[in-house]
Design a protein around this nucleic acid. Structure first.
Lengths: 123, 123
DNA sequence: TTGCAAATACGAAAGGCTTCGTATATATTT
DNA sequence: AAATATATACGAAGCCTTTCGTATTTGCAA
């Protein structure tokens, strides 16, 4: 069973998914473009995430290099299934409707979604 | 700004959304059909949720009656927007695709969603 | 080789969540 | 009225998350 990362952990995972494996220094720099975070805070987070099995690290060099152990799609799936149960009582269509409808989904987004559905049907 | 309830809080909100306002005793009974929870645990949770503005309570009778202050749709919206940002980098179509595709969305569900989209377009 | 810079390790504080025990108040029953 | 049952109030423990300070190690440069 795949764990549900915290928001702070997701912040870190997002960066690793986008840019690939990197050192604490590199990740902390990227994080600091969003908000102020101390270096040792990032370090500690990544160490804990490694313990938890969210990241792996290569200690070959002095500066360890961290990689995500989960793919973004796996976490997306886990998170969606979780709120599907906890806030949508398992009603998948309702979730999609809410995702589509109750706000500013542009016509472009909607048509993109329609074509995705078409592809899905062809399988 | 609407808060993001915890999983335990959602458990309680789900029950209140489904069955309407009720006392701690009633809610605790329903909760205990799912898992073992002490009465004072439910009580404390509901008191805290009241402080937070998630519930209101009527103290007219000896047994206070609690009601949800947020509608289920509001929370659904908040939760979805949150994971849209944190795990989908704002890509709404991707979220919908994941909700639809990477699993057992039945043909019935898909066609239901298509008709929902049609309605959405007509607005 | 001594000193400075940069990295990791570690501990711990602060705050939030969940759980429950105990105390107290209020009804109900005998 | 006394005993029992049922409610709320309150405090606190245990755990997790986030943050950072300090200590230690490692590499590089003067």
């Amino acid at each position: 069973m795949i764990s549900k990362p915290t928001d702070s952990e997701l912040e870190i995972l997002q960066i690793l998914w986008e840019f690939g494996a990197m050192t604490v220094r590199e990740l902390n720099d990227k994080l600091n473009k969003e908000r102020k975070v101390g270096y040792t805070t990032s370090l500690k987070m990544m160490q804990i995430m490694t313990e938890k099995g969210l990241l792996s690290r290569d200690t070959g060099e002095r500066s360890h290099v961290y990689s995500p152990l989960l793919q973004s799609e796996e976490v997306q799936f886990t998170m969606l299934e979780h709120i599907l149960k906890t806030v949508f009582k398992g009603n998948r269509s309702n979730l999609v409707l809410q995702a589509l409808g109750n706000q500013d989904a542009s016509p472009e987004e909607i048509s993109e979604i329609k074509s995705l559905i078409k592809k899905l049907e062809e399988k």
